[in-house]
């Protein structure tokens, strides 16, 4: 029984990480209808930059912020420099973002090499503590993941629901053309949203590189998990991303614990089921 609770806790903490990674992806899709395939590369960039900065300064928080900012800048450049020129042509934008993702991954391989990096954790997060009741050791960083996810989710919800900028973004989701007609600088808003999505990805990258590790291939792994999470949860909604992450995280851990060989199948079985029954995702709204 203890093992079951531990696996559940593992699932929850993994879900927290998946939510952090998928939130930016979902945000960008929500407003711009772009399936940003460079999301994994942005995440990996954040992770690598975070590693270098932590290595240099010794401060983990500065590393997380630097990783977020680097990915935000890269995201803004991607939107302003490439995707912005293909406005309204979502398929082309998606294909271009695949190209960007491959180029970014190769540049990072060239600069950081192919070895595996791990970000050194601050004193408070490293090591583990003994869980009450269950009586086993558990890594602090994994418990902290749940905290990070809650804070990020809440901040994102407040930003989208309660601020003026959030209102503009929501209006953009509902009717882009009307927003444009009302005189809002939609191009600048798009760049900002992309930067914000990039920042979320970059910070998630540093956190992932601390809790797990980062190496070539990490980008695709998180891109895939983000895709599955938002497809299951529903594109473009914070709650959907959270629900999707929860299902995928739990499925993956139960799979790994009880049927390791077929673990991956569970994740995709959930996706197939959702696509068959509710193609817009569990909390997604159907397209008109």
């Amino acid at each position: 029984m203890t093992f079951f609770f531990i696996v559940t806790l593992n699932g929850l903490t993994l879900a927290a990480l998946y939510f952090l990674a998928a939130s930016g992806f979902s945000l960008i899709f929500g407003l711009m209808r772009i399936v940003n395939m460079a999301h994994g590369a942005l995440l990996m960039l954040g992770g690598y930059v975070g590693y270098s900065v932590v290595d240099m300064t010794g401060s983990w928080s500065i590393g997380v912020i630097a990783g977020g900012l680097a990915a935000a800048a890269a995201g803004a450049i991607v939107q302003a420099g490439v995707l912005g020129w293909m406005q309204g042509d979502e398929l082309r934008q998606t294909l271009a973002s695949i190209a960007i993702s491959i180029i970014m991954a190769d540049l990072m391989l060239w600069y950081w090499g192919g070895i595996t990096y791990q970000v050194e954790l601050p004193e408070a997060l490293s090591g583990g503590l003994r869980l009450p009741l269950l009586g086993v050791g558990y890594a602090n960083i994994r418990l902290a993941l749940i905290g990070f996810a809650l804070v990020t989710g809440l901040a994102l919800w407040i930003f989208i629901q309660k601020t003026r900028m959030g209102a503009i973004i929501r209006a953009g989701v509902d009717d882009q053309q009307m927003l444009r007609a009302l005189g809002y600088p939609i191009n600048r808003i798009f760049i900002l949203v992309f930067a914000l999505g990039g920042m979320l990805a970059g910070m998630a990258g540093v956190i992932a590189a601390s809790a797990l590790s980062i190496a070539p291939g990490t980008d695709l792994q998180f891109l895939l998990s983000s895709l599955v999470v938002v497809i299951v949860g529903g594109m473009g909604s914070v709650g959907g991303a959270a629900l999707g992450a929860l299902l995928v995280g739990l499925a993956e851990q139960y799979g790994l614990a009880y049927a390791p060989t077929y673990g991956v199948v569970f994740t995709f079985a959930i996706m197939v089921l959702v696509l068959a029954v509710r193609p817009q995702g569990l909390l997604g709204r159907a397209e008109q």
Binding site: F3, I6, V7, N10, T13, L14, V136, A139, R142, L212, S213, G217, T218, Q221, E252, Q253, L256, A257, P260, T261, G263, V264
Partner: peptide
């Protein structure tokens, strides 16, 4: 014996098993 998929990144449940 625990056989895990290649490229798996989260081993926490294996660790506890």
């Amino acid at each position: 014996k625990f056989w895990t998929p290649i490229g798996n990144s989260d081993y926490s449940s294996v660790v506890y098993a």
